[in-house]
Simulated scan of single mutants.
Amino acid sequence: MRLPLFSLMLVVFGLTTGEFVIAGILPEVAGALSVSIPAAGQLMTAYALGMIVGGPVVTVLTARLPRKQLVTGLIIVSIVANLGSSAAPNYPVLLAARFAAGLVVATFFAVAIATAASTAPAGRQGTAVARVALGMNLGIILGTPLGTLIGQHAGWRATFAAIAAVTLAALVLVLRYVPPGPPAATGPLLGELRVFTGRDVRLAIALTALGNVGVLAVFLYITPLLTDVAGFSADAVPGLLLGYGAGAVAGNLLGGRLADRALMPSLAGLLAALAGVLALFWAVGEVRVLAAVLTFALGVAAFAIIPGMQTRVLTTAHAAPTLAVAVNASGFQLAAAFAGWFGGRVVDADGGLRALPLIAAALTLTGLATALVILRGEPEEVPS
């Protein structure tokens, strides 16, 4: 099982790096294309919008393609879009290329998750999902810094070319090791869409959005929290974020194992732990040592909930799991967009930055409440 999962994880690594690396090369892009820094920042927004739109649309349009043929096509689109980004002659073309690159992400992630779960041994679906999702963690903590380093020394165009090269290498592995599979849909399209009429599916997607919105708001403003509240120097932030990333890797693997043992009870417990870490960040975040420890703990808690949330969507959407996971990914991006807007409003208020972790903890409790509603409607889970 490891080589197919590694192949899919490597693609996810490239896709995630492509989303976040723009933050590290903003000055280079802005200077080369003669646009402002905020305008260059919209390239990340274009990628996210591509994911939001592409999640349901691309998944529905490609639902009857055989799984391996679909995966191959999606990877090729990503490679072409990144090469197009590398060669873009001006800002509008680059903006369009980033949107195109984002279009395939949610569908690929959904197919990769469904493939991982379907090829995993019984009782190991959560671990398999976590291994694929590990590509997200590595894209943030490894791919983005490496892409930034390449952009600073070889130019921003080389960054997108490098992402295309990594994705191409992943394609070779996918063609060699990922087994063929049936199409995501074989029946009428309307039957696929009916999956969202199910209460359990809607609650699973709501759980993802509500459970993540608070921690996303804190992560988006983690640098000023560490410098302006905790009192760290700007030079210390990269090391602290590396600690966050290390926690994210550990949390992702832990969350997969807990999901295999007792899915919803573990999710409820992890959401409670996440709310607790956020509340502690508010209470003692001005103490540097504790802020550093809590930054690592925040990475653990934030990513421990992801494998279980993805597995929950899969287990409730038997009729159309790929479409449901794709829409769930789009929902996550909408939550991120809301977190950015809401977090900005909070930070702009007097004392808002200091209060943001506490407000985020309260938002996380809405996710916990959703998990408890789901648990109340299910028979008691017996740990495996």
Rank of each mutant, 00 (worst) to 15 (best):
T72N: 12
V111P: 01
P56L: 11
M136Q: 15
T62A: 13
G84L: 04
I150P: 01
A106L: 08
R67Q: 14
A130R: 14
G143C: 04
T159C: 14
L49W: 03
A46D: 02
N137L: 07
V105Y: 12
N137C: 12
L83W: 04
G84Y: 03
T62C: 12
T148A: 14
G55D: 10
S85R: 11
P89I: 03
R157W: 12
R98K: 11
L168S: 15
A97K: 03
L70K: 11
G41E: 13
G143P: 02
F109V: 12
G84V: 05
K68N: 11
G147K: 15
V71P: 00
A97L: 03
L61N: 08
A81F: 01
G151S: 14
V129E: 10
G123C: 03
R67D: 07
G126V: 05
V60D: 13
R157I: 08
V111A: 09
L61I: 03
A110Q: 01
N90W: 07
R131V: 15
V93T: 04
T45E: 02
P92M: 02
A116I: 02
A158G: 12
T144E: 13
F108S: 04
T167R: 09
F99L: 14
G102D: 09
T59D: 05
A114E: 13
T167K: 11
L49F: 05
Q42F: 01
A114I: 04
V132G: 09
T127Y: 10
T167P: 00
R64Q: 13
L138G: 10
A122L: 13
A161S: 15
I52H: 08
G126Q: 06
A100K: 07
N137D: 09
V104Q: 03
L103E: 08
T45A: 07
L149I: 08
T62K: 03
G102C: 07
L146K: 05
R98V: 09
R157T: 11
F108D: 05
A88G: 02
A110P: 00
V80F: 06
A101F: 03
I163Y: 06
P56H: 06
I76L: 13
L83H: 07
F99M: 08
A101R: 09
A63T: 09
A122V: 08
N137P: 02
V58T: 06
R67G: 08
M44C: 00
A40K: 01
V71D: 01
A87G: 01
A96K: 08
T59R: 00
L83T: 06
G55W: 01
L149H: 13
A114R: 04
G139M: 14
N82I: 01
G126R: 05
A48S: 06
I75H: 09
L134D: 11
L74S: 03
G73K: 00
V105H: 15
M51G: 04
T45L: 00
L168Y: 07
R64E: 15
L94M: 01
S78C: 13
A97I: 03
A39D: 10
Q125V: 14
P145T: 11
R64L: 09
G143Q: 14
A117T: 05
R157L: 14
A87I: 11
G73M: 00
G73N: 00
L103Q: 11
N90A: 04
A46I: 00
G143N: 08
T144G: 08
A100E: 04
